[in-house]
Design a binder for these strands. Sequence first.
DNA 1: GCATAATGATCTTCAGGAGGACATTTTGAA
DNA 2: TTCAAAATGTCCTCCTGAAGATCATTATGC
Lengths: 68, 68
Amino acid sequence: MIKCHLSKLMGEKKLKIVDVARETGVNRGTVTRLYHETASRVELETIEALCRYLGCDVGDLFEFVDEQ
Amino acid sequence: MIKCHLSKLMGEKKLKIVDVARETGVNRGTVTRLYHETASRVELETIEALCRYLGCDVGDLFEFVDEQ
DNA sequence: GCATAATGATCTTCAGGAGGACATTTTGAA
DNA sequence: TTCAAAATGTCCTCCTGAAGATCATTATGC
């Protein structure tokens, strides 16, 4: 599965969902879905905005977890 | 921007688009879009299949390139 | 206690990926 | 070189889910 670490990254910086949505321009519903890992599709634009805002790379945000 | 290194990864292994599509179960059109970097949205399921098949992590497949 | 902010949940709209079909190009064997 | 099969590019339709807005509920702090 692909694990999204947005909640962890946000937690480390004590960020709120509204903060991330407001500062990145990404829709709040989208941030919420990624935060709770209920998203199954992502816009590359969204990934870019989050990486830029969080100062991280794609690999920090998403991780491939092999669970055969 | 978010750069997709699928073409590079495929080139290193001398893989064809059909190979990747057939082996991963991902639609050929989707592989083509990622190969030519014309995709703007990705299914997490697709990323998972590609990572598993290529034996790489998400960060190897997608890279955040800051170009302010 | 109350006002404000934050979050969760739901609905509609719509862009674009998924999947399939067809045309064209490339490849390789005869 | 010729021809058939494979690979790729392109176009079309369908359908999912992000985007955006709104409302109800919960949390925060003054």
